[in-house]
Design a binder for these strands. Sequence first.
DNA 1: ACCGCTTTGGAACGTTGTTCCAACACCTAG
DNA 2: CTAGGTGTTGGAACAACGTTCCAAAGCGGT
Lengths: 209, 209
Amino acid sequence: MHAAIETLDAGGVDALTFRSLASQLSTGSGAIYHHVANKEDLLTAAADAVMTSVLDGAAAAAGADASQGVRAVVLGVFDAISAHPWVGTQLAAAPWQPAVLRLFDRVGAELDALGVPERAQFDAASVLVHHVLGVASQYDAGAHLASAQPGGRFDRSAFLDGATSALTGEVDAADLPFLTRVVRQLQNHDDREQFRAGVEIILVGISHL
Amino acid sequence: MHAAIETLDAGGVDALTFRSLASQLSTGSGAIYHHVANKEDLLTAAADAVMTSVLDGAAAAAGADASQGVRAVVLGVFDAISAHPWVGTQLAAAPWQPAVLRLFDRVGAELDALGVPERAQFDAASVLVHHVLGVASQYDAGAHLASAQPGGRFDRSAFLDGATSALTGEVDAADLPFLTRVVRQLQNHDDREQFRAGVEIILVGISHL
DNA sequence: ACCGCTTTGGAACGTTGTTCCAACACCTAG
DNA sequence: CTAGGTGTTGGAACAACGTTCCAAAGCGGT
């Protein structure tokens, strides 16, 4: 399992094959099937291992202030996925897996502590979880793009990468007036700060429920 | 291309292989490579075709009221992805593809018309697009789950599916107190209404910028 | 009617997830 | 101490996939 996470961190989900994992562990591919049912199971278990340590760590960091609880959880997940980009794609692809359910439950509990009306808690938690996993998927996509481009320096925000290529002529810039205007202000931005800004927008909306 | 979309709608991304598409078109697999570079290209083109008609349709429906413009675009995309669940996964997996850039640009333009401050337009559009694509990915995941389960009646919200299986004992319900509480109120809910509720939360947050 | 270029169709290649099974290790009962 | 059963191991084998390759067929202009 530890070996699988290392491979995933190094080369993404494409680098993790049963054969590469078997040779890394000096064993046969068939032996792995006595520990996991199939590849989906393997990825689920790997993502679960990462998320477990994250959620436990966020639990300790949350502390007393209820209004900071959601932020601690959500930013903790963000940081974890920055370190392990494949986790985002994995969680988004199979939302019923335990790691996602625990994240959702955790966010919901924080919102309850924040005083969000019961009727709206599910909707509010959904928006927050979707935002985390949405940004997370982008990071994995950006990692894919960066590894495909030979020696290219890529920002992690795939939106900006695409918008940049639009400005360099690969896509017709005239069809994207908003993007061409806004991308100039964002040439040197902080991904984490941008994610946090999104969270704040959502929290303001939630606070008015 | 039309044939590819039909196959994707019927059986998801796994059902679309170069061999199945070739036999459906009564041709060889090699011939397809003279129209698209590879499978990623094929999926990008298919998703682009769907999104083009959606965005054009939403453009017509938007009309005069600026405050309804964002809602029209975002709900239009939601409805399209309900009909073609694979589009959501495809857009989320490669955010730099033209279809995503056009969606992002369109949402940004609507926010600009709404009077959102320039500084915050990028963050606001990001949150909205992430929410759409996040919910969209869930639908594709739910379709996968429904086709895997033999004859199972599945709700489309994968969160609820997972939560239901938690309540039926597959996952330890004691670890998910929030989910076990909230899932009872949502046994018969409307997916579209829930998506719209998420959009409203975000729009309230945006309006306070 | 000829020749160049593009398109076609199907065979072939390498890689992947998965299955299968003989060999092996280990623990428990007698 | 030994025999037998249970569970694990490792590697060969299979089917399916994306992709490449190339001979054959079309098709345009001179």
